[in-house]
Amino acid sequence: MDTNKKLELARIANNVRIGVIEGVYSAGCGHPGGSLSMADVMTYLYFEELNVDPKNPKAEGRDRFVLSKGHTAPVLYATLAERGYFPKEELKTLRKTDSRLQGHPDMKGTPGVDMTTGSLGLGFSAACGMALSGKVDNKSYRVYTVLGDGESEEGQVWEAAMFAAHYKLDNLVAVLDWNGLQIDGPITEVMNPTPHDEKFRAFGWNVISINAHDFDEIEAAFRAAKEVKGKPTVIIAKSVKGKGVSYMENACEWHGQAPKEDLYKVAIADLEKIAESLK
């Protein structure tokens, strides 16, 4: 990838991370850890990969995105705001009564949200349904979904994995956020769902493993996925939970809580420092 483009994407991703922190801090609750881990992938999706138009969020031929790990709504909202679906100022209404930004994504309320999610496993299946519908009608749109590694402990994830391979949904790409942590601890200690690569391969998927914070690898993976015919692709994205905020990185306790004022200031200072380095 061109250095300038890479720098530009890194700047956007950093803004997305700031949006995550602003939203979660303002709400006083929410899920920052798994939001920050996917900021780079989400940025690449909405600024490079997806064929979408913020001015026409329901366009029939658009690519679809389903955040199957719906609890990381803050990163979806921050990315959508950054892309121009709604004002960034609105991120501060996250989780508040009468806000368009519900605690978990609501397709009926938020511009740019293609599927209601939050209950783990369900979004992955819905993405399969969208991809199947596109195939039936010979539509050219593609369907993207982001799953959590903890989410893969849900049996429905594997029902969906079986379904997507069975119906050869090569218009479907799943990203698995392998940050290694879930609410109760490391995924390998709580209920080990690994190895994801071998499992997905055995289920009939094309498997690509990348560093979730390297735009070259992200780009190469999405490009490779487009070339694969006859099977869906999963991108296993090794990430750092809480990426970008010093005290949140690889710290389980920041899965689902908001920083208080002092730590909020530290988070913003951390991210502003990154912004400086990207100038």
Partner: peptide, 26 residues
């Protein structure tokens, strides 16, 4: 046959797949 899809013995997935299909307007 081209409009019928067996989901196998996986009802939870079938219901969410149906939701995804409906979300595309079908």
């Amino acid at each position: 046959p081209e409009r019928f899809f067996d989901c196998g013995i996986a009802e939870g997935n079938m219901i969410s797949v149906a939701a995804g299909i409906a979300a595309t307007g079908k």
